[in-house]
Design a protein around this nucleic acid. Structure first.
Lengths: 170, 170
DNA sequence: GTCTATAAAAAGATAGAC
DNA sequence: GTCTATCTTTTTATAGAC
C-alpha cells in the first residue's frame, strides 16, 4: 500500500495521491486501506518513516564508498528509480503540498548528509556546492513528469562529478 | 487575486491554494473570483502567464548584467522574495501538484536560461554545474516552510559563486 | 483483515439577484 | 463586477457485515 501511494505521488503528484486512488492501485478497497492506515496522516507518516530507514542505509553507504563519499553521493543523486530515490521524491511532493512533517523529514535527511560529507570536502563552501548540485539533480528529476529530463547522465554526469569533485577536494 | 493565489501557494503549498482560500485572501467572494478566472485552470494559467512575462525581463537582465551573466544568474537564484522568485516557487508548487502546464512553463524557463548562459560558460558540463546549483538554491528555498533555510547567504554565497564561476569560466 | 454502504466535509463550478 | 445560494463531485472517514 505504501508502494502504491509512493508510486502515485512520484508519477502524478500530490493531488492525485488520494486514499481512493491509493487503495485502487494497491488492489484493496478504501476500507481495507484504512484498516492499516487509520488516516491520510498515518499513510504519509508511514512513507516518511520508510524514508528515514532508507536514509540510514544511504548514509552508511556514503561514508564507506570505495570511490569516495562525494562521488558516490552525487552519483546516487540522479534518480535511478531505486527505493531511496522514489521515497525522496514522494516525500518532497508531500512537503511541497504543505506537509510540515514531510518538510521536517527532508531537513533531517539533509543534515545527515551534511554530517556524512563534511569530513570529505575542503570547507563549507565546497560542502554547499556538493549539496546544491545534488539538490538540483533531484529537483529536476522530481519536476520531470511529461517533458524530457534535462539532467546529465552517462559521460556528461561523470564530467560534472569530476568538476565538482575537483572544486571541492580538501 | 493572482497575488493572493501565489502567496498561498508559496506559504502553504498547493493543497491549501483553493479557490475558496484564494478568494478569502483576496478579499472577494468565490463568485467574484470566478468572474475574473472562470475556473481553477484559468487561475493557474494566469499565474503561469505572469511567470512567462517575468522570465522575459529576467533573461534581459541576465545577458546585460555588468558583473557577468553567471554571477547575476546565481545571485538571483537565492529567493529574494521578489516577483520572479515568488512566481517560480508558486508555479513549481503547481508542477509538483501534477499540473502539466506548470511543468511545461518551468521547462521553457529553463531553456531560456540555457540559451542566455551558454555563451558565457566553458562547455556543457560547466553549464550543467551552473544550472544545477541554481536549481538547488531554488529547491531549498521552496522547501523551506517552517524549518530554517540552510541556503548560503552573504559572504558564504559570494564564496560559492566565486567557486562556481571559477569552475565554469570559459 | 477486508469488504460495502454511508456519513461529513471540502472543493470546484453555476445561477441569478443586486 | 460582486454577491449569496445552491449543485455536483471528490475526498476523507466511520459503521458494521462477513
Amino acid at each position: 500500500m505504501l508502494d502504491a501511494f509512493e508510486a502515485i505521488l512520484v508519477a502524478d503528484g500530490e493531488r492525485a495521491a488520494t486514499m481512493d486512488a491509493t487503495a485502487r492501485a494497491a488492489g484493496v478497497s478504501k476500507g481495507g486501506l484504512l484498516y492499516h492506515f487509520a488516516s491520510k496522516d498515518a499513510l504519509e507518516g508511514g512513507l516518511i518513516q520508510r524514508l528515514a530507514g532508507l536514509v540510514d542505509a544511504d548514509v552508511e553507504a556514503i561514508v564507506s564508498a570505495p570511490d569516495g563519499p562525494v562521488r558516490y553521493f552525487l552519483r546516487s543523486s540522479v534518480m535511478a528509480d531505486d527505493p531511496l530515490d522514489r521515497a525522496i521524491v514522494a516525500v518532497s511532493r508531500l512537503a511541497q503540498g504543505g506537509s510540515d512533517a514531510a518538510s521536517r523529514a527532508l531537513h533531517e535527511m539533509r543534515q545527515r548528509w551534511v554530517d556524512a560529507l563534511s569530513p570529505h570536502v575542503r570547507d563549507t563552501t565546497a560542502l554547499d556546492l556538493v549539496l546544491l548540485v545534488s539538490d538540483g539533480l533531484y529537483f529536476n528529476n522530481a519536476l520531470g513528469g511529461d517533458a524530457a529530463a534535462p539532467v546529465p547522465t552517462g559521460a556528461a554526469l561523470d564530467a560534472l562529478i569530476d568538476l565538482v569533485q575537483e572544486a571541492s577536494r580538501p
